[in-house]
Design a binder for these strands. Structure first.
Lengths: 187, 187
DNA sequence: GTTCTGGGCTAATGGCGTTAGCTTTTGGGC
DNA sequence: GCCCAAAAGCTAACGCCATTAGCCCAGAAC
């Protein structure tokens, strides 16, 4: 006899992620998640503490997913090659999942649940920059600068903020080149 | 006898802006706006069509306010001096009104109500870059690049996304310099 | 076989946005 | 200076949402 597939926190987050990918963050409602998981709304509270906590789990999931993808893209590369791989992987991810990106936490370090994933992400960037031999605050500034560029571009692009999408690839190429030139200049 | 101050759309937006500045975008609720304006909630519908439209008006207000501030900062300057003034004014505005920044529309060109303000803003950036003599798509790319930098930094800073705020001024200085070097390099 | 626990359920509450329909104020036309 | 239409306020009500309380049932533990 088939055991009735019981719900778990992970499955609830799965449903939330699907919902966000399809209809955007504003469509993330407990009623919708319940419908998708085939359960009554209050039953979700056996697996999550609140809608806010579900959002936290969702943000964590997205951040872990991004880190995994970017790690795969960067591994085995160094220098400009690695930085390019990271930056292009970032944009590719957001292009594939534009609505999901708005569910990613911008301040993971301030959330108990997401802190570890946030640190892993930052360490990945630092590791990507390793071969430039940056020390102390130079490394921190360089990390912040890439983050500003990739996040700035991604958040504008994913919300349709660039009037016409024409030439966006070129714009991104220029940003990558600008960052690399800058890195080289001060390393 | 003092005439009872009647409500207008502008006053409703004023109240909404105060509310957002004090308690964040998620606190923007018709009930709260009604309480602040001394009116029953449904009465607001005599001045706005819906909460969504109020958000639109609010975004427009913020965008116009920013454009006015940045224009004042840039006027009378040219070249690197103008670009620096624009970029520092942008960050200063967001530092003064961190919560408000999240109410600013990221795609004003796709909103009937905000399109004109969005174009004015873009024209301001283009004008700021005028003295570099960029033509056609070069000007568009350069505009997009500044926007990515200032928005990326502002959105991360305003949501506390940089772990420790230490050295943030330096990071921003580096971003400004990076952009200027890049502009110079390709002009 | 009984018991205990975990995961589901229904019912109910309070806050929200929104609509309908009423009353009141107000300002312009005569 | 009065009248009346339109503007701007109100209360009542609806439906959706998150959340809580309290019940029930299945299945694992013993």
């Amino acid at each position: 006899m088939v055991v009735r597939a019981r719900l778990t926190t992970a499955k609830v987050v799965d449903a939330a992620l699907e919902l966000v990918d399809e209809h955007g963050v504003e469509a993330l409602t407990l009623a919708a998640v319940a419908a998708r998981t085939g359960v009554a709304t209050p039953s979700l509270y056996k697996h999550i503490a609140s809608l806010g906590e579900l959002r936290g789990h969702l943000g964590l999931r997205v951040m872990e997913d991004m880190t995994a993808r970017f790690t795969a893209a960067v591994v085995g590369r160094a220098g400009d090659d690695a930085v390019r791989a990271l930056m292009y992987a970032y944009r590719a991810y957001v292009q594939e999942h534009p609505k999901r990106y708005l569910a990613a936490p911008m301040d993971p370090l301030h959330d108990e649940l997401q802190r570890e994933a946030g640190q892993k992400f930052m360490e990945l960037i630092l590791a990507t920059l390793r071969s430039y031999g940056l020390e102390g605050s130079d490394a921190i500034h360089a990390t912040r600068r890439v983050r500003v560029i990739v996040h700035g571009f991604a958040s504008i692009e994913s919300s349709g903020g660039f009037g016409l999408p024409e030439g966006l690839d070129d714009t991104y190429d220029q940003l990558v080149r600008m960052y690399l030139d800058d890195l080289r200049g001060q390393s």
